[in-house]
Design a protein around this nucleic acid. Sequence first.
DNA 1: GTCTATAGGTGGATAGAC
DNA 2: GTCTATCCACCTATAGAC
Lengths: 212, 212
Amino acid sequence: MAIATPASGSQSPRKTNASPHDALVASGTSERILDVAERLVQTRGFNGMSYADIATELGVTKASLHYHFPSKADLGVRLISRYEENFLRELATLDASRSDAKKKLRGYAHLYETVLRQDRMCLCGMLAAEHATLPSEMRARLSAFFDANESWLVDVLEAGRKSGSLSFEGPAIAKARMWIGSLEGAMLLARSYGQVARFTQVATQLLSALSL
Amino acid sequence: MAIATPASGSQSPRKTNASPHDALVASGTSERILDVAERLVQTRGFNGMSYADIATELGVTKASLHYHFPSKADLGVRLISRYEENFLRELATLDASRSDAKKKLRGYAHLYETVLRQDRMCLCGMLAAEHATLPSEMRARLSAFFDANESWLVDVLEAGRKSGSLSFEGPAIAKARMWIGSLEGAMLLARSYGQVARFTQVATQLLSALSL
DNA sequence: GTCTATAGGTGGATAGAC
DNA sequence: GTCTATCCACCTATAGAC
């Protein structure tokens, strides 16, 4: 349910992910670093967060962090990749539920809401704001994340319109972009007010705009 | 038309604004500093921009900047205040035009678009992302900006509904928040893709949702 | 009002011991 | 893998000459 939350997804030692210099040993430490870094970026931004912040929270030294993520750009790229993986996994779960389109969209908005309830901004929404200052490798990953969101939404919207469970005019991609932009923006504002309701109000309106 | 653009509003020497330590002499330098700082914050964020950046662009020293704005928080607060003043001035102009509600809303969206076309994010949208790292004086000003936007939109929306030129269900304040959130978010995404069309598509959809 | 000079802190990053 | 120690660039900010 939650997205890349320390308490949720993926921390116990596994051999699935390549981490320290692409060796096949994922120490678990890398994941803990990513967990903390992720939260810090979501709340303070990539520029508003430092190796020192992460190190202090984890009780290790900065040098240790550099062992796992030599440069901050490396860390940033892995943050986005992991976030996208987790997000796409959630979307796949929604697909597997075989709900109707409207329910899937509700679920989609709920993913954002879960992040917001942790007083966090969407990782990629935050990074989009800092876009101009990011290493180019991060920028590329960022677009990939939004492209993936867009294409998932397009599929759901078109299927919903075809089946008659959704009603809207114009190309699905326009609606998809409207959804992403509006949810990200609503999240941004809701968080700066500390009022989740400001987000849910927008999500509700987006949904009801697709009803007959 | 443009919002707080160096080329537009307000730079020639005047006695209206208090600037250096609230003396009654506005050197013009303060405004030039604000012009550069504003653009840098809009493109790189408050944390992504420094006194050194501004100084270099203006060909002065950092010490000179500190004379006009002793601390970065001072600079930030004045940036928001000026931005809000200029923005509200544009809204007043829209009001004075005595257009119908729909035209006013179109004008409202156009204000955002003008900023976006300069490859900038809305100053306050950018700062909203950095909210958690901002000095508290800046946070307060930030809310004031969005509150003012909200109340202007509420007035326009209610007048439009009463006159029959707009059609929507539910409280005007919900629609107002939807507008702000969606425009800010669409701007955020459009800018990170460098595609203004991503913004105008959303603005168009927001408008047509208010038609019969 | 603007400069030089500098203080004091923190940023990311590396070398080398353990 | 994690540590200590350190480098150097950059940050905000101030003192004091001009």
